[in-house]
Amino acid sequence: MEHRLMNDQEIAEIYRESHRLEAEGRKEEAMAKRREAPLPAFLAKVMKEKLGGQYVIQSGWNLAEAETKFGANWLNR
């Protein structure tokens, strides 16, 4: 999955699409859609500290905000 920064408009559109999927009963697809938007950097840090770097990678989340804030190699530190 592409990890890229997004502006508020793009993030809002992702969430609108995820809500459309939820309304159709497609909950897991809706959650997968929401993971296309960047995970906020402070939450990515919590995920790494409490669950480990491997979990972060396998979570499937867009990590662009964390990579921008903490550096490309942040999961290995």
Binding site: M31, R34, L39, W61
Partner: peptide, 8 residues
């Protein structure tokens, strides 16, 4: 993490 991200 999903719901807290959405709240954020």
């Amino acid at each position: 993490f999903d719901c807290v991200t959405e709240i954020y």
